[in-house]
């Protein structure tokens, strides 16, 4: 009751392997990791643009580099990550933006659907443009 004060708490955390603890953490981990792949992809495209202004041989060499099997695998993985990031990010929008009409939050679908719609339209336009350039 009146002796020496004894407290020695022990700390418990999720640890550095937290993302392996449950599927929802893993999904977040993948979503955040996807940024690395997307960043590398952006660098590759910027280099490509730069090479386009260089002599044709340089440009061709870079294209050959991009077509090596390792880079193809990288791009497949990257596109999967990009799709995951886009999909999960769009779905998080209702939590991020609270729009109220007459005191009621508008349904999440009204925020999510236009994004997917816009994504589809832009993708369609790009495909059409590529097709048009290719055909022309």
């Amino acid at each position: 009751m009146d002796g020496e004060v004894l407290t020695q708490p022990t700390f418990r955390s999720l640890g550095w392997t937290w993302w392996t603890r449950r599927p929802s953490y893993l999904l977040v981990f993948l979503r955040e990791t996807s940024s690395v792949f997307i960043a590398v992809q952006v660098v590759l495209v910027l280099v490509l643009l730069h090479k386009a202004g260089q002599p044709a041989a340089d440009y061709q060499a870079y294209l050959d580099f991009l077509w090596n099997p390792g880079m193809v695998v990288f791009h497949v993985v990257s596109i999967a990550f990009a799709l995951l990031h886009t999909y999960t990010w769009f779905n998080l929008m209702p939590q991020t933006v609270a729009i109220r009409i007459r005191g009621r939050r508008i349904p999440g679908l009204l925020l999510v659907a236009p994004q997917f719609g816009g994504w589809a339209v832009v993708t369609g336009l790009i495909i059409a443009w590529v097709w048009w350039v290719g055909a022309g």
Binding site: S24, Y25, V28, L92, Q95, T96, V97, A98
Partner: peptide
């Protein structure tokens, strides 16, 4: 924005949403 705070909240407070907003 891991979002697990909102998933485990027994009162549906959605702290993740509050922080993003």
């Amino acid at each position: 924005f891991v979002g697990e705070c909102s998933a485990v909240c027994p009162k549906h407070v959605d702290p993740a949403g509050a922080i993003q907003q």
